[in-house]
Design a protein around this nucleic acid. Structure first.
Length: 569
RNA sequence: UGGGGUGUCGUCAAGUGGUAAGACACGGGCCUUUGGAGCCCGCAUUCGGAGGUUCGAAUCCUCCCACCCCAGCCA
C-alpha cells in the first residue's frame, strides 16, 4: 500500500551518502530525535522524526530517542509520555535506545571539571544583568569578566561548591572561556552550568546546578556515538560552539551537526509557545483538539500515520525557510484514506423524503460495496424503507444552473437503491422552509440501474429514517483564516486571525445502523461528503460523535464559487 | 553598521558547467451507481538583479538587492 518510489534526494541524504562512500564513520549512521519535554509534538516535529529515523533506517543505521531535559523549570512527565506515544504512533521504534540528557548529568559535571582543569572554563560571579552588559552587542565586542582569570584551583573549588548548594540561584555560573570579542555571540564565554533549584522530573532534587543546551547537546551526541546531528536552522550559529566543546574535551566521537529548515504550515501555527497559548487561553479544548496541528490533535482528527509520513517525504528537506500549503497535507490524507476507508452513508442535515408508492411496511436490504477501491473489503446490507432522509443540500426547489441533484419533477438515483422522482414539496407555512419531500420510486431500478437504460445525472446518499442512528458530527475548518497568521505587520497578536468557524457541531445527523457500534477512532468515508472518524474522547454508547477528518473534493462547491465570481465581477 | 544563513513556477522542491525533474494548487478534457476516485492534456525560453568567465552557466567569478536567525543563567 505504500509507494516505494526511491526517495527523492535532499542535501542531508547526499551528505550521508557521501560519508558512507568515504567510510567516514566506519560505515555507521546514527541519528537521534532530541525533543525537549516542554510541550506536545506537532507536525513540524514529525518532519524531524521522519528525517532522523528515516535517514538511519535507509542506511542500516540507528536512531535514538533522547529527551533534552536540562531545564527542570519547563519540563514535565506528561510531555515525555505524550512524546513517546506520538513517536510510536507515527510508526517509529527506538528499541532500547531511550535516553535522557539528565542521564548524563554526572558525566557532564565531570566534563565541566575537565574543562576547568584545562583552563577552558571559569566560575563567574557576575549577575545575569552584568553578564548581558559585558557581552557587548551585535556590532560591539564584549569585555572580559573580572572573574575570567580565576585560578584553576579556585574555579574547581567554586564549581564543587556550586554543586553542593552553597550559593544562591543565579548567583554564579560556570562559563566556557572562549572569546569575548567573537563576532559570534555564542562564543562570548557562554554559560554552561547554572544554579537552579527546581525539582527535575527524573533526578528530583539531586542537582541544584544544571548544564545548558550548548554544553549538553554536543556531549550527549558524542556519548551516544551519534554520527549526524540534525537540527533546525536557528542552531547554525551554535555549531562553532558545538564543535569547540567537543574539540576541548576527550570525547568518544565528534558528530557532525547539520541544520535544515523547520516546517511551517499554512493556516496554522507551529510553535510550542503559541500552541500552549491556545491551550491555556482555551481557544481550543486541549493539545489534542482535532483542530490542533499537534500529532495528538491530528490523530484524534482521524489522520493516519502513513499520510503524515508520506507528507513529510513529499515536502522535502532543504535550508530554505518555507511554508507548505496545508492542501498538500490534506491531499496526502485523502490519498491514503481513499484506499482504506470503509464507505458508509450518513446524512448531516436531514431532509425527510417519503416514497409515496413504496409499501408502508416493507423494508429491503440493499447491498452496498464497502470500498470500490478495494473490493476485498466486501459488501454490506443497508435497510431501505418508505421514509428516508437525504441531505438538505441535495434538493433545490429552484435548481441553479449545473445543479444535477433532486428538484421538483426531477429523477435521481439513491445510491445502491432506486431511482426516485420528486412529486411534491412540503413547506413550513410560516417560514417557507422545505420540511418534507414526496417522491415516487421506480421498482424496476432496484440496485440503481434501469432496464431501459435511462440515465440520471445524480446519485444521492440516503438513510432509512426509522433504521438510522442519530449522531453528532463535528465539522472542522482551518484553525486560522489567514494563510500566514503570524505574518501580519499591522497586528502583533496572531490570535485575531483565529477562524471563528473552525468548529461546527451538527447534532441531528443520521448514519447507517451499522455504525452504531463503531469503535472510537475508527475511520469511514461518508459517501459524497468526506472522511470521518469516531471521536476517541467524547463519543459514547449513548451519543455517537464523529469528527470530519477531511472533506472529499467538492467540484460542485467549486462550480458555485466560480458562478458567484462570474455573477459579480 | 558585526556574524551566520537563504533566494529555481501560486506553494514545496530536484538540479553540483551541457541546454529547467516531480508533487500540490490551478485550468481544460475523458470516465464514472460517490459532482469521490481514476485517466489525459496544459502550466518557469527561465532560475533575486546586474556584469563577467566559457563553445555552453540555475550551476564558476564579481558587485548589488531582498528576506531569515543571533545580544536567555531557553532549547
Amino acid at each position: 500500500m505504500t509507494t516505494d518510489s526511491t526517495p527523492s534526494p535532499n542535501f542531508i541524504r547526499n551528505i550521508v551518502a557521501e560519508d558512507l562512500k568515504t567510510n567516514k564513520n566506519n560505515g555507521r549512521v546514527h541519528t537521534r530525535f532530541p525533543p525537549e519535554p516542554n510541550g506536545y509534538l506537532h507536525i513540524g516535529h514529525a518532519k524531524s522524526i521522519c528525517l532522523n529515523f528515516g535517514i538511519a533506517a535507509e542506511n542500516g543505521g540507528l536512531c535514538n530517542l533522547r529527551f533534552d531535559d536540562t531545564n527542570p523549570s519547563k519540563e514535565e512527565v506528561e510531555y515525555v509520555e505524550s512524546i513517546m506515544e506520538d513517536v510510536r504512533w507515527l510508526g517509529f521504534d527506538w528499541d532500547d535506545r531511550l535516553f535522557y540528557a539528565s542521564d548524563y548529568f554526572e558525566k557532564l559535571y565531570e566534563y565541566a571539571e575537565e574543562l576547568i582543569r584545562k583552563g577552558k572554563a571559569y566560575v563567574c560571579d557576575l549577575s545575569p544583568e552584568e553578564i548581558r552588559a559585558y557581552r557587548g552587542t551585535l556590532t560591539e565586542p564584549g569585555k572580559d569578566s573580572p572573574y575570567r582569570t580565576r585560578s584553576v584551583e579556585e574555579n574547581f573549588d567554586l564549581f564543587q561548591r556550586m554543586r553542593a548548594g552553597e550559593f544562591e540561584d543565579r548567583s554564579r555560573v560556570l562559563r566556557a572561556k572562549i572569546d569575548m570579542s567573537s563576532p559570534n555571540l555564542n562564543m562570548r564565554d557562554p554559560v554552561i552550568f547554572r544554579i537552579l533549584r527546581a525539582e527535575h522530573h527524573r533526578t528530583g532534587n539531586k542537582w541544584c546546578i544544571y548544564p545548558t543546551y550548548d554544553f549538553t547537546h554536543c556531549l550527549s551526541d558524542s556519548i551516544e556515538g551519534i554520527t549526524h546531528s540534525l537540527c533546525t536552522l536557528e542552531f547554525e550559529d551554535n555549531r562553532p560552539l558545538y564543535d569547540w566543546v567537543l574539540d576541548q574535551l576527550d570525547v568518544p566521537c565528534h558528530p557532525q551537526q547539520i541544520e535544515f529548515a523547520r516546517l511551517n504550515l499554512s493556516h496554522t501555527v507551529l510553535s510550542k509557545r503559541k500552541l500552549l497559548e491556545l491551550v491555556e487561553q482555551k481557544h481550543v479544548t486541549g493539545w489534542d483538539d482535532p483542530r490542533m496541528p499537534t500529532l495528538s490533535g491530528l490523530r484524534r482528527r482521524g489522520y493516519t500515520p502513513e499520510s503524515i509520513r508520506n507528507f513529510c517525504e513529499r515536502i522535502g528537506v532543504a535550508k530554505r525557510e518555507s511554508t507548505v500549503e496545508i492542501a498538500l497535507l490534506e491531499h496526502c490524507l485523502r490519498e491514503d484514506l481513499n484506499k482504506r476507508a470503509r464507505r458508509v452513508m450518513g446524512v448531516l442535515r436531514p431532509l425527510k423524503v417519503v416514497i409515496d408508492n413504496y409499501p408502508e411496511d416493507l423494508v429491503e436490504e440493499m447491498e452496498a460495496i464497502n470500498n470500490p477501491e478495494d473490493l476485498a473489503m466486501g459488501t454490506r446490507k443497508v435497510p431501505f424503507s418508505r421514509v428516508l432522509y437525504i441531505e438538505q443540500d441535495d434538493f433545490h426547489e429552484d435548481p441553479p444552473k449545473k445543479f444535477f441533484r433532486l428538484a421538483p419533477g426531477r429523477e435521481v438515483r439513491l445510491r445502491y437503491a432506486y431511482y426516485i422522482t420528486c412529486v411534491n414539496v412540503v413547506k413550513d407555512s410560516k417560514t417557507g422552509e422545505v420540511t418534507e419531500l414526496h417522491c415516487t420510486y421506480d421498482p424496476e431500478t432496484r440496485g440503481g440501474s434501469s432496464p431501459d437504460g435511462r440515465r440520471v445525472k445524480a446519485t444521492l446518499h440516503w438513510v432509512s429514517a426509522s433504521h438510522s442512528q442519530e449522531a453528532e458530527v463535528r465539522i472542522y475548518d482551518h484553525l486560522f483564516t489567514k494563510e500566514h497568521p503570524t505574518d501580519d505587520k499591522e497586528v502583533s497578536d496572531f490570535k485575531i486571525h483565529l477562524n471563528p468557524n473552525s468548529l461546527e457541531a451538527l447534532t441531528s445527523c443520521r448514519v447507517e445502523p451499522g455504525l452504531r457500534d463503531a469503535p472510537p477512532g475508527s475511520r469511514f468515508q461518508f459517501e459524497r461528503l468526506g472522511y470521518f472518524c469516531v471521536d476517541s474522547v467524547d463519543s459514547t454508547d449513548a451519543g455517537l460523535i464523529f469528527n470530519r477528518t477531511v472533506s472529499l473534493k467538492d467540484s460542485w462547491a467549486k462550480i458555485q464559487k466560480a458562478q458567484k465570481k462570474k455573477g459579480q465581477p
